[in-house]
Amino acid sequence: MTGKIFRDAFLLVGAFIIAWLVFSYLSKPVSIPDQFIPDEQTEKLADWIDEQITRNFDRLDDHNWEEALGEIVDRFATSDLVNKVNYEIVVLDNSDVNAFATLGTRIYVFRGLLELIDQHEEIAAVIAHEIAHVELNHVEQKLITEFGIVVLLSVFTGGDLLLTGEVLRAISSGAFSRMKEREADAFALDLMYDTGIDPAYLGIVFRKLKESEPGLSGLNFQIISTHPDINSRIRNAFEFEKSGLEDIPFETPWPGKSSE
């Protein structure tokens, strides 16, 4: 009887493997679309998010910052790597050390972060990283993963306040997966190199954020202050192959503090 049991076990496993192979042969692979929400809808959602954010934070309207950040965005717009146009940097008047991207093309930078930065290239590195999250649709993917598209759309069309708060928290917390952070880093390094900015500045700014006081309220940089992986991310930035880099300086004066 034991022999028959083993024979049946082999039969069962064999039938399973054959069925798997046959069904695999008859199936077609399916790619997860990069973008679930149509562009038009994305813009509406982005406006809704902006409305919610500016309800909680004041905008910092400073011509000098607008000019300096505008030059960085214009520089990135010249790269073929960037497909979306009209990036807008919104500076929020808050002491938190933070920056995050949302749906659409707005990137929010906190005054606290700008105060920690010494030059164009450093904030450019942060913006390049955030642009990467937008270009790679990380925000949309994260929201859909966390909430599901149906819930998400119901929130944006006037869902309850609790869910609205949760969606905003998810957006501003910026806690992307390790894989997505690495993807964003890689994209940012390429983008910086492509637009004449030394990619090592990404490492410099990461190190600065890591070494700064725990006044880092976290949000998008929580991943930096708590992630065990941060040292290798800094190393990657410094080790990026940059031979042939054409270092192009920024023309606008730096409006913040300077290390010099």
């Binding site: 798997w20 695999s24 199936s27 077609k28 997860i32």
Partner: peptide
């Protein structure tokens, strides 16, 4: 879904086998 990995033929093969 979490890692945004595409669903391969092997995935669907096993899915249909599981259903079966």
């Amino acid at each position: 879904f979490m890692t945004q990995t595409d669903f391969s033929q092997l995935f669907f093969g096993l899915l249909w086998t599981t259903v079966f």
